[in-house]
Each structure stands twice: as structure tokens, then as C-alpha cells.
Design a protein around this nucleic acid. Structure first.
Lengths: 207, 207
DNA sequence: GTCTATAACCTGATAGAC
DNA sequence: GTCTATCAGGTTATAGAC
């Protein structure tokens, strides 16, 4: 193992910093993290952050774009897939999103926080203006059940998938649920949400 | 209108600071707000914050407790009310919570953020340990449908009520929905959520 | 490329005049 | 009680040695 042949475990300095930044920024947010926290987390000196990334803000920007792409890059293709049925979309979205969030439990809160700080950002990640209004998903809900506002339905669907992760720390404390049990619940949820969504679609619309 | 008879509009200095603190802290969170922001928002000098509240942290603590009590003080009594049916609880919770959040749209995000920063806090606001596990709501769901995990159901119910408000800025940007239209949607939602929750309770449980 | 030392700046808190 | 001016400490960013 010569010095120039790094093992898989040890990344380049630049990548070490990015990895540390991902971790600290997602946990504490932009304002509450100090560049020193990131340097320490990376096991490196503070000056290197500026050497590689010029500023805290630029480093954050890189992490932020990554996270946004992860969050929306999964969601939008499913919602706008013209070759799957609405029922398939419910199953794909629920199962895939919960898997994604199980490996990235802090992702939704980070994304929601960032959108609140800067709502204009969201337009960079929705492919085009009125993307959602014109999406296949919205059309399919409209065809299935004209009296139902498809955006109301989507809000509920997303809420059922995402909210448990936003609420995770509080929920676990309140119900004495450890990570293992929480994971089991979320896996179970992959089947519950499509079933429940279909029940909602079938339910009589209230006056 | 003598000097000593203030009009309803102008509050005491102390109350002006608190009101400004509520506004800025809820919008930007603890770390991102500077005491100078609060002073400016209140139209007062920075030194007065420390005169009245000793420190940024103490001022934040006061605002935070208020918000937590507002958030949980409404939820817990409904969930644990022994003299209402499960169906009534669904209706009361949905209607009441959405009304609360329409006048306090930033409340859920603030509370969720605070719980993430300090999960132990939540135990101060849940009246006793295992409050939720032993609650009337959980018992009633269990009686109604033994094969359904009542916590899964509660997560969905809360998600449907709360998530739209957490997502509000992004949703509005993405769908070109102004505040007036958003409010209409949420009022409509007060009827949708109980109907949908009941449909979930009636739906066949997936294997 | 990586480090130590330090500059430049920002922020919470206080002193002291009014 | 309220203000201006300032301090003390912490934080980002950089200079310069290695």
C-alpha cells in the first residue's frame, strides 16, 4: 500500500470536505454550521475549505444543488411519466420515495428549509414553468375523478410519504421508536400508501 | 388621546420586541436571525433587547415555548378526549388544525425545526411519558381496525393536515397559487381530510 | 497541497449619556 | 426607559511558511 495508492476508504481531500459539508449542512442548516465544524468533521484544516471552495456560501451551494436534484430528480420523472398508469405511479412513487428517504432521512427537511429561505430556487429544479400543472399525473387524476382537485390529492400523497421523515426525531422520541422499528414502519408504509391513495380515489367526494 | 392612554395599535416596548421576535425567529430560525434584525423589525434600538430580555437565547426561549404550546396545546386535548368518537376526532382535528395553521402558517415548520434541534424538548409538551401510546385516539383506532397500526394512521392524518403548510412556499411557487387561492384550498381540505381518513379506515388492509 | 497565524468582519452584549 | 458608542468574542477568509 504505497502512499500514492489510496484505499477505497480514503477519499481525496476535496471529496472529504464535500462529504463533511453534506453531513453538517444537512444536520444543522447553513447559518448554524461553522466552517470549523466542517473542517473538524473532515479531519482537516480550516484553510483548506477556502483553498478548494473559495467560500462557505459556494460550498453550501454545491451541496444544496446536489440535494435538490436528489429530491426532485426522483419525483418529477415519475409524476410526468406518460407510459405508466396512475395506479403504477402511486406504487412507484410511494415505494421509491420511501426507499430514497430511508437512506437520506434528513433530505426532506433540508429541501423544505431551503425552499422556504429562497422559494425562487424551486423553479430551477422544476424543468419548466407550469411543469406540475401540465404533468401526466395531474391529468390522470383529473380523468379518474373530475370532482377531485388533483393538487389536493397530490398534497396528501406527498404528505403521507414525506411527513413521517420530517417528523422523525419528534415521533421517535414521543413513541419510543428506535431506528430499526422506524425503518420497519416505513417499509410497511410502502404498501399502505398506495392502498390508501386508491381508497381516497374511490371514496365519495364530500359536498 | 393622552400619552398615557395608548391606542390599541401601539404596544408596550416589551411587547413590541416580543412581537418582532416572534416574526423574525419564526421566519428565519434561531441561528439566522440577528438581534439587530429584531430591533429593526420592532423599530427600536438593539440595546433594548438586552434591557428587557437579557439575551438572544432567553428571548428565543420565550417565543419557542409559546409556539410549542400553541402547536401541541390544540392537538393533544383532541387526541386524548375520552368523550368524542373517533369520527368526531377526525373532523375536529382536521377543521381546527387547519384553522389554526391558516392564521399561523409558519408554525409547523418552526416547531419541526426546533424539535430536530432538540428532540428532548418534546417531552416537556407531551403531558406525560407514553402519552401518545396510551391516548384515547390510539385506542379507538385499534378497536375500529385491529390490523391497522394506529401510528401509521396518525402519521398520515397529521401529514395531510400539516404537510401543505410546511410545503406552502414551494407549492405556491410551483403551481402559481396566491394566498387567497391557497386559503380556499385549505378550507376545502377541512372537509376532504375527514372523508379521506374514513375511507382509509374502511379500506381493505394490504397484505 | 497543507498547515499556522492573523487579518477583516460580524454579532451579541454592555457602558454610560440623556 | 431609551439611545449612541463601544467592547469582547467568535467566524470567515487570507497570507505566508513549509
Amino acid at each position: 500500500m504505497a502512499k500514492k495508492t489510496p484505499m477505497v476508504a480514503d477519499l481525496s481531500t476535496e471529496e472529504k470536505i464535500k462529504e463533511a459539508a453534506r453531513k453538517v449542512f444537512t444536520r444543522k442548516g447553513y447559518s448554524a454550521t461553522r466552517t470549523r465544524d466542517i473542517a473538524e468533521e473532515a479531519g482537516l484544516n480550516l484553510a483548506l475549505l477556502n483553498y478548494y471552495f473559495r467560500s462557505k456560501e459556494k460550498l453550501f451551494g454545491i451541496v444544496m444543488v446536489e440535494k435538490m436534484q436528489k429530491f426532485f430528480g426522483f419525483l418529477l420523472p415519475i409524476i410526468n411519466n406518460p407510459s405508466t398508469s396512475l395506479e403504477s405511479k402511486l406504487e412507484n412513487l410511494s415505494a421509491g420515495y420511501i426507499d430514497l428517504l430511508l437512506t437520506n432521512p434528513d433530505l426532506p427537511f433540508f429541501v423544505l428549509a431551503e425552499i422556504r429561505n429562497n422559494p425562487d430556487l424551486i423553479t430551477n429544479f422544476a424543468q419548466k414553468k407550469d411543469f406540475l400543472r401540465d404533468s401526466v399525473f395531474i391529468k390522470q387524476v383529473r380523468e379518474k375523478k373530475t370532482e377531485l382537485d388533483p393538487f389536493q390529492f397530490l398534497l396528501s400523497l406527498l404528505g403521507m410519504c414525506i411527513f413521517p421523515f420530517v417528523m422523525k426525531p419528534g415521533f421517535q422520541k414521543l413513541t419510543d421508536t428506535d431506528d430499526q422499528k422506524f425503518k420497519q414502519m416505513m417499509l410497511e408504509r410502502k404498501k399502505l400508501i398506495p392502498a390508501w391513495s386508491k381508497a381516497i380515489l374511490k371514496a365519495k367526494h364530500p359536498l
